[in-house]
């Protein structure tokens, strides 16, 4: 701010900046400069880390998708819940209760084509294979990964209603 004071030498009023306000202005400019720089830097860093997080999620997407599909399979009855009796099947779930396999649903699935398996698991863009193994032997197999090269695999533990533990292996490959 300009400050009016008397120039005693020439005996008139002078309208100019004092040394003190000049300093204040300089500090203010420095402060604004630093705040601006910090904001720009923070923005760049946040964008960079957000980008990294997004890339990480994108990279893991097929794997996360398979996990999601295996959750639906092992923790739900599917839809409609009694689809093995009515034949009205729009989403596959093969459990009566959490991790406990429903044998009639498995029997029904044996007659469903590989394409239908992918569609009913809402993974149309992939080839899907589901295997149920006990002591290394395949007891049930539904669907197929075909000639897919990039295959993601998830293995989960489950049990049949008679108490036999099984390993559920879901494999998903690109549907080129």
């Amino acid at each position: 701010m300009g400050k009016r004071f008397k120039d005693w030498k020439n005996g008139r009023l002078c309208n100019c900046f004092s040394g003190h306000s000049k300093k204040g202005q300089t500090y203010m400019v420095e402060l604004v400069f630093v705040v601006l720089l910090a904001s720009i830097l923070a923005f760049i860093l946040i964008s960079f880390f957000s980008f990294l997080v997004k890339e990480d999620i994108k990279g893991n997407k097929p794997y996360i998708t398979v996990w999601g599909a295996s959750d639906v399979l092992l923790h739900s009855t599917g839809f409609s819940p009694d689809w093995e009796e009515t034949g009205n099947l729009s989403a596959i779930g093969i459990a009566y209760e959490r991790n406990v396999l429903a044998d009639p649903k498995l029997v029904f699935l044996s007659s469903v084509s590989a394409e239908e398996i992918s569609r009913l698991m809402h993974l149309e863009i992939y080839n899907v294979s589901i295997e149920l193994l006990h002591e290394g032997m395949v007891y049930y197999q539904f669907g197929s990964v075909g000639n897919s090269t990039q295959i993601q695999q998830v293995e989960r533990t489950c049990v049949s209603s008679n108490g036999t533990p099984f390993l559920l292996r879901i494999r998903v490959g690109g549907n080129e």
């Binding site: 193994l133 006990h134 002591e135 293995e155 989960r156 533990t157 049990v159 533990p165 099984f166 390993l167």
Partner: peptide, 8 residues
């Protein structure tokens, strides 16, 4: 027996 049916 359950451990045997877990991922390697």
């Amino acid at each position: 027996a359950v451990f045997f049916e877990t991922s390697g």
